[in-house]
Design a protein around this nucleic acid. Structure first.
Length: 569
RNA sequence: GCGUCUGUAGCUCAGCUGGAUAGAGCAAUAGCCUUCUAAGCUAUGGGUCGUAGGUUCGAAUCCUACCAGACGCGCCA
């Protein structure tokens, strides 16, 4: 184990630097480039207390370390500036990468824990009766990736789709349907038909003040289990859910529970009662509120004047219910940053309710997708539908595949995979918090650091392995990798688990994407610089094993991000 | 007005638990296919890290103020 040897070094320096080995270990960093070693210990921090220059300290560290035998796999120690740089033997790195990758490629880089902590992850959560826009892709994509990353990091993950299937919007929809809709309209493309009704409602709303009133009344009826309203609601919900599931299948995303907002409806009266009994809720202007002004979180609305529930009420019920069911160690809400206040209020009220697990709830926010200069708005109808993006991307990919690889058999399938790769990766190519301007050009890009870039490298590995024709075998001599491109590739492959760890800690799937770009870059350089298939037997065996290793890491990482892995393209 | 987030190359973004010369991709220019898929590889140019202070041996990174943009702040979700 690389970590073991590095930890040994920290132990050996512990006394001299007057710091625990654990602290030293956590201080180790990756140098900017490999000429400065594999890990570095910065000595600046100790300079003041020990009244020595960082340079002298680094040298002292070096002499302490070289005085005795270096731990297994450590090649040498050098100093540069105030850094004590640790160089690993490249044969050691090769062994550490290739052996586990060969014996259990599926779990390479993963963390196995004795007892898996439980994470509830709520994501995607689209609104029923509204088309799935490119904006919804963010929560879906981040949530699905994070779920897989958490699993790879040893969590048991429970995935919940908190469908937006309750609320005043349904009152609006029912009102719109009654005025302008008909059953035939919903036959062909029900979602678009419902969407048109929704947009029309908001157009007419400005002219006709009674509309909103009617919508609210409809929703109140729905909550009071009015049969007719409920039938319509059920119908709209079924239509949407059917279409949603097709989309999730296409993206290979599954949920453990489709517990939408409506699911918690019956739990709300008790919740309200408890809140009142604990004197947390108070009447104000006809509504029921929790005053959180003293902590800077404004006023939280629990119940409207007409007694109907609100988003926050349903989220409170949902959180409590989920905790009862799963007693999770962590709950992540993958929801846009514009709802920050809502989640602050939610967590704060949970705490006031005495739910001590409230600090295990976390809002994983992300920036918005804007469209040109305007914010995308379903109400105004200026949205980009995910289905349109996907079909346009597929069309474009098809043209490119036809041009680049005309003999390919299943061009349409490959185009589908490549276009999905492009769209999904584009969505994960910046940190969550960044808001992104939607651009066809960016999302349909196939060159440079994109999904297809990863896929192309993966295809190259598959092609090499196929041409090789045999199963790769384990090698004995790990010192045969001499070319710098081989060493660099191995070095990068050895860092997979760090990428996963960082992605988990920062809740950033993007970190895995960045890492895969790095692997791909290293692989391409290796491929360019070195012949693989037409070399002598020993070298061939080693290089094909390295190709196998790269292929598996790429595959594993792309799986985590939901990026399809074509065999040919 | 208050709060949160963002501001780094022409464009899109890394780097932000302080540290070694501020890195990629796109676009531009110049090379590399009689050899394993050129959706690739190599090279070149391109930067007051929003502004001004402060902390520090050291600041793109931490603190303060200001500027610009996005979002949120009582009956939507």
């Amino acid at each position: 184990m690389i970590e073991k040897s590095l930890f040994r070094i920290c132990e050996n320096l512990s006394e001299f630097l007057e710091a625990s080995p654990q602290d030293l270990f956590s201080m180790l960093e990756f140098p900017p480039d490999s000429s400065k070693g594999d890990r570095a210990l910065p000595c600046f921090r100790f300079a003041k207390a020990m009244k020595k220059s960082p340079q002298d300290l680094a040298s002292a560290c070096k002499s302490i370390l070289v005085r005795q035998e270096l731990p297994l796999g450590i090649d040498r120690i050098e100093t540069a500036g105030g850094y004590c740089n640790i160089y690993l033997k490249s044969s050691f790195v090769a062994k550490e990468v290739l052996e586990p990758l060969f014996s259990s490629p599926e779990t390479y880089g993963h963390l196995i824990r004795d007892k898996a902590p439980v994470a509830v992850i709520e994501f995607s959560s689209p609104n029923i009766a509204k088309p799935f826009s490119i904006g919804h892709l963010r929560s879906t994509n981040i949530g699905a990736s994070l779920s897989r990353i958490f699993q790879a990091r040893g969590w048991k993950v429970i995935k919940i789709n908190h469908l937006g299937d309750w609320g005043t919007q349904f009152g609006k929809l029912i009102a719109a349907y009654r005025r302008w809709g008909s059953a035939d309209q919903l036959g062909e493309d029900p979602i678009r038909a419902l969407f048109k009704l929704y947009v029309k409602f908001h157009e007419e709303e400005d002219k006709d003040a009674t509309l909103l009133q009617e919508a609210r009344e409809n929703f109140a009826k729905l909550e009071k289990k009015d049969e007719e309203a409920r039938e319509l609601w059920q119908w709209f919900r079924d239509l949407t859910l059917k279409e949603l599931k097709t989309l999730y299948d296409k993206l290979s995303i599954g949920f453990d529970y489709y517990w939408g907002e409506s699911f918690y409806m019956d739990q709300i009266p008790d919740l309200i009662k408890t809140l009142q009994e604990k004197n947390l809720a108070q009447e104000s202007e006809g509504a029921l509120i929790v005053d959180l002004k003293d902590e800077g979180n404004g006023v939280a609305l629990l119940r409207k004047g007409d007694e109907s529930s609100l988003y926050l009420t349903r989220d409170l019920a949902a959180a409590i219910y989920r905790h009862q069911q799963f007693s999770f160690d962590q709950m992540l809400y993958i929801v846009g940053g514009e709802q920050q206040l809502h989640f602050k209020q939610l967590f704060s009220i949970l705490k006031k309710l005495g739910q001590d697990w409230s600090d295990r709830c976390e809002h994983i926010n992300f920036g918005q997708i804007s469209f040109g200069d305007e914010r995308m708005s379903t109400r105004k109808g200026n949205v980009v539908f995910l289905s349109d993006v996907l079909s346009r991307a597929k069309e474009m990919a098809q043209n490119i595949v036809r041009e680049k690889n005309p003999e390919l058999e299943n061009i349409e399938d490959v185009a589908e995979q490549v276009s999905l790769g492009a769209v999904l990766f584009a969505d994960l190519s910046a940190r969550r918090a960044k808001s992104v301007k939607f651009s066809w050009e960016d999302i349909l890009s196939f060159d440079g650091e994109t999904g297809p870039y990863l896929q192309y490298a993966f295809v190259r590995t598959r092609s090499l392995l196929e041409r090789y024709g045999k199963k790769p075998e384990m090698i004995e001599d790990f010192s045969q990798f001499q070319a710098p491109e081989e060493v660099e590739l191995l070095r990068t492959l050895s860092q997979f688990s760090y990428a996963l760890e960082r992605a988990e800690k920062e809740r950033e799937p993007f970190v895995v994407g960045q890492y895969l770009i790095e692997v791909t870059k290293r692989f391409n350089r290796f491929y360019q610089a070195v012949r693989i298939l037409d070399t002598e037997a020993q070298q061939l065996k080693g290089r094909i094993l390295l190709v196998f290793a790269a292929s598996k890491v790429l595959e594993s990482g792309m799986k985590l991000l939901g990026i399809p892995r074509p065999e040919k393209m």
